[in-house]
Nucleic acid binder design. Structure first.
Lengths: 332, 332
DNA sequence: TTGAAAGCGCTAACAA
DNA sequence: TTGTTAGCGCTTTCAA
């Protein structure tokens, strides 16, 4: 193709990559561009990568794409990366730490120019292995207890605070918190916020915290069954996420307890269709798509060597009040 | 690293790639493997790609990851590809044909070894451009009217048949079909099945077909509003997909019509949480994850030059009867 | 502003 | 069974 333009390949290369060293005359550039167009020429990304040591690809590691919070995040990431000319190599760990390790290793071997990781448990070998790797890395929604990387997520603390305030405002005093798995930062952050807000709003009042085995409907069902079977049950449940809330719904159905008349339930995440379940779930909504975009933007900044401050970005959350919460009944 | 093992680079290469021409002695292989391990050596995929003309990456083109049917498909694809050592480059077109064209072109420029396309409208420039490209291509869930590629999807025909049979069995005769956008093969296939089954079950009886503008809640709401506002409204609605069915739910709420007492509704796809909406939606379930796996398997077969027959694979669907369907009320 | 030459890290073809 | 040589298609360095 350089031939067709009547110039040296190096010149052609420079003409097509304006930011390469060495300015090219307009005349030559025009000839080269024209020749490229006529031949439908596209530079071989592989050869370019080999030379420049840049693969043009970013690895995106997710715990489980079937978890409804992830698709919007991945979309935000993917769109932002494509806009910047970067490809998006998707890797799903199925929530297995060993797979996380293996996939991150594989992505590194493939010379990804950056990594966006949404899988990090509070202890993550994979994330630890990245620390001195020099690979631009951004964590999303989940993070290890200790790490040096930028993090993007929703402002869960504010969400939990709003949720608890809402329940207390409705007159609830016997409120149980159903956490989620304790090896996830999400769980810990939400729980801490719950405790702090509790001390502000109901200092000294006894509170109930139950850990569930996972962020799943089954775990929520199981944990709530014990909680609600006994005497002196709570009048409101704050769930670690919407899945757990749905598990609570199932238990309520089983036990014949009416929501919201006899008990209020609040979720977290505002997954799709949570306005359509019965009763429509009051929950904390997180701008997941924006979280994804922001994470990708941050990665691009790092890659370009731009300063990134602050390194923690918590996007605003909002409590969406629907039909699953109501004033505490006087009967209790 | 070949140095450390005391052999020529080419020998090392052969030792690490057992299926390359030229067998290597066990002794040498052992030495090479050991040296590689000690150095943490991983062959550079870029250099390898340049030499072998294989990028190790497959492009996956989806219309919109936020559409709940897609994540399981993508997961199935992704898992199967990784198992085969192939990366999964994700591209989301946001349902825009121009983006589909641009992204496919970009994926080709990146020398993808294969393409899995879930975006194909009944007319797709992008798919057409692939016809003589030599790039292994598999279509999923959607396909153009005419194309030479393997296709994997759910057996929608069987699903619609079962759905209609179910409604007719419940005594419904005034049944309306709310299609979906007519530029999608999914719509056409489902509608054709509806018509054929109708002729089998209710020959001569008048049937109502309404086209919606999209596979969305809003489109379903809008189309059903006209349909249900008038006199002589249907006693059952078969929706082109679950989103449309949810739109119908909204209309029913607005008009104060009770489902399933006054009207039955059936969806298609069985998206997540359709068992939790109110009333729980009777719908056709499709093994989306398996669809994804099968599509990836097919692509691998093609890539390896294996025969693929049949070239159309329709995976079994099943009608899930829940709470949105009931016998036609005698009152009507 | 452009050309010449070298080389990124591998593996294919050929020779020993 | 192993070594030699060459070259994949770019971009970079150096020289003109």
């Amino acid at each position: 193709m350089a031939e067709l333009a009547g110039v040296h390949p190096a010149t052609a290369s420079r003409a097509l990559n304006p930011d390469l060293p060495g300015r090219i005359s307009e005349e030559t550039t025009r000839k080269v561009v024209e020749a490229a167009r006529r031949l439908g020429y596209r530079p071989d990304p592989t050869a370019r990568s080999l030379r420049t040591r840049r693969s043009g690809v970013v690895g995106v590691v997710v715990p489980d794409l079937l978890n409804p919070v992830l698709p919007p995040i991945v979309r935000g990431i993917e769109e932002t990366l494509w806009e910047a000319g970067l490809g998006c190599l998707l890797a799903d760990t199925d929530n297995r730490p060993d797979r996380e390790t293996a996939l991150v290793e594989e992505l590194r071997a493939r010379r990804c120019e950056g990594l966006i990781i949404a899988t990090a448990a509070r202890q993550s070998e994979a994330v630890a292995s990245l620390i001195d790797s020099g690979i631009p890395t951004v964590l999303v929604t989940r993070e290890p207890d200790d790490h040096p990387f930028p993090f993007v997520g929703g402002d869960d603390e504010a969400g939990v605070e709003a949720a608890l305030e809402h329940l207390v405002g409705l007159g609830h005093r016997r409120i149980a918190y159903l956490t989620g798995p304790t090896d996830l930062s999400t769980t810990v952050r939400r729980l801490m916020a719950f405790r702090q807000m509790w001390e502000r709003l109901l200092p000294g009042v006894r509170r109930t915290v139950v850990h569930t085995e996972g962020f799943t409907v089954a775990a929520g069902r199981k944990a709530s069954l014990d909680l609600l079977s006994g005497e002196d049950r709570p009048t409101a449940i704050l769930a670690g996420n919407d899945m757990i809330a749905l598990g609570v719904y199932e238990t309520l159905q089983t036990l014949g307890i009416d929501c919201p008349r006899e008990i209020s339930v609040v979720g977290h995440n505002d997954m799709p269709f949570m306005d359509q379940v019965h009763p429509p779930l009051t929950t904390v909504t997180i701008p997941q798509y924006e979280v994804g975009r922001e994470a990708a933007r941050l990665l691009l900044d790092i890659r370009e060597g731009r300063e990134v401050t602050p390194t923690r970005r918590l996007l605003p959350t909002r409590l969406v009040v629907r039909g699953s919460t109501a004033p505490a009944s006087v009967a209790h």
